[in-house]
């Protein structure tokens, strides 16, 4: 397929990119392009211009300092999945990134592009939510930070303003006693999540649960948190029975169905996959 015509800009700094974006309200930001180019080929998106931020070095780093992991927007899924720093500080993110698309897609797709695209069936949003990620964005008036829970607004909609660019994702490094898991039940055609569960649990000295988080992709219009369910595990021994009991109350508001899986089935998948993710996270804690 063949995209419509557009102008092409290749800024060398975030400031320059933001400036071009401010000047071109119909422009789109191009990072890896693996969310954007497919919809442009189908002419479902026809931006007047693309702003290619793929060569801005400032957006390409992975660093860890002061208990905080920072990942630039243009870091690819493959880099995240295989980064020792990420595997150590946010293994959930590495695990989820390693399950996106296929190996070719993972070489090109970026965390910034993924989160900005906000496809609820992709794998990173739930991980970002479960990890309580902070998203740094730049706009004409400077930078600001948004929590992942405030970032995802609706289907393919974020709280990014039209003239803002996501520049960096910040995650608190995992503490001792914490385990996590991302488990996906994939759509056989697209490989996207019919249901993807991201779980984080922390065990105290005695082995009982001191903190838990459980978030889902693929079930409703945005990645959703089921932290109410997860919270009910706090204080428990995280036994299989405790996990089963917690997820039995799981009900995701506004679960959505499509031709491949009904909303009701996705709810059930969420229980099964969610329990599996929690058990695996527990075993890793």
């Amino acid at each position: 397929m063949f995209p419509s015509k557009f102008d092409y800009h290749r800024p060398s700094s975030v400031q320059e990119a933001v400036q071009i974006l401010s000047d071109n309200p119909d422009a789109k930001v191009l990072a890896g392009g693996h969310s954007l180019i497919p919809v442009m080929k189908l002419r479902l998106a026809t931006p007047s211009a693309l702003i290619d931020i793929g060569r801005i070095d400032a957006l390409k780093g992975i660093s860890r300092a002061n208990g905080s992991l920072r990942i630039g927007a243009c870091v690819t899924y493959n880099e995240i999945a295989n980064s020792g720093v990420v595997q150590d500080a946010a293994p959930l993110l590495a695990e989820a990134a390693g399950q996106i698309g296929d190996r070719q897609v993972r070489y090109r797709g970026t965390i910034g592009g993924n989160l900005s695209h906000a496809d609820p069936a992709s794998d990173l949003p739930a991980a970002a939510l479960a990890l309580g990620a902070t998203l740094h964005v730049s706009g004409p008036n400077g930078s600001r930070s948004v929590s992942a829970s405030e970032f995802f607004v609706d289907l393919m909609m974020t709280s990014l303003q039209a003239d803002e660019i996501l520049t960096e994702v910040e995650i608190s490094a995992a503490s001792a006693g914490t385990g996590s898991a991302y488990v996906k039940f994939e759509h056989p055609a697209s490989g996207y999540a019919l249901c993807g569960a991201a779980a984080v649990v922390t065990r105290g000295a005695g082995g009982s649960c001191t903190g838990a988080s459980l978030c889902f992709n693929g079930v409703s219009a945005t990645a959703v948190s089921a932290n109410g369910v997860a919270a009910s595990l706090v204080g428990s021994d995280l036994s299989d029975g405790a996990v089963e009991s917690a997820v039995s109350n799981l009900s995701i508001p506004d679960a959505a169905g499509d031709m491949f899986a009904s909303a009701g089935y996705r709810q059930e998948l969420a229980k099964a996959i969610g329990a599996q993710a929690l058990r695996t996270a527990r075993d890793r804690a």
């Binding site: 392009g33 497919p38 070719q104 897609v105 070489y107 090109r108």
Partner: peptide
């Protein structure tokens, strides 16, 4: 192979 990595050339712009 783009710089040694397998990519889908239908999803990469020539300018990229």
């Amino acid at each position: 192979l783009l710089d040694g990595q397998a990519v889908k050339s239908c999803t990469v712009l020539a300018v990229q």
